[in-house]
Amino acid sequence: MSSEFNHDKILLSTSSLNVGYREKRSTISVAEAINFEVKTGELVALIGVNGSGKSTLLKTLSGQIPALSGEVKIDHQLLSGLLDKDLGTYLSLVLTNEPVSRQLTVMELVALGRHPYTNWMGQLSKIDIEKVNKALSQVDLVQKEDKLCDSLSDGQFQKVLIARALAQDTPLILMDEPTTHLDMFHKAYVLQLLKTIVKTSQKSILFASHEINLALQLCDKIILIDEGKVDFGTPSELIQKGAFKTLFPADFIVFDENSKTFRMKIQND
């Protein structure tokens, strides 16, 4: 079903990217020598422990903070060369913990995704409404379009935010922990939804997540940040390399290569 797309098209690539923060006098490098490529129709997970620099990398990729050195290219154009107003047509975001107003209907919030395309008053054209409706049906929220976001569950609201990014209709979607605050079923559901989206549309999704076990089963590629070092490859490539062995302290959590899952090591007292 996905054969109709050109899977060799590279949407996002980095070369010798170095990310971190600039402080008044010094620069604090968080992760170095990052090289990866995201192609059309790929679901890519960004994995790393707390404080490993996932958010910093994501912010750099989305242009919120500048790279310390190296290059980020979106659709073969340098990210640093894109204007603010054009960036919104290349990549869209799904973020957590933003002060998003919930006093909007599902429809209104998703329609805000059309912002880069509407006129100065934000008037929705026929095409805009079509795209919004398509996004709503992709996340299965058509029935709730007139509901106030305030009345939705966390899982449903997450779907609204994903629909907003879909309505923005960009080739690339970056997500920051799209499954936090969700129960196990909704985590699996949302990730499965992302998989379906990339397989049925010419979009690529890169998401930061702590759901390593689910990501290993589902994702096409994984970017693994471990103590400032970055590995990139398909789940099986990374497993073969033994990249997951050192991710967590071995006396607490071990990686079982046969079942491709992390397991807690039961402490005997």
Binding site: G88, S92, V100, L109, H115, P116
Partner: peptide, 10 residues
Amino acid sequence: LGENYAKSMG
């Protein structure tokens, strides 16, 4: 949607 979303939409 907050400033980060607003910026990401241009």
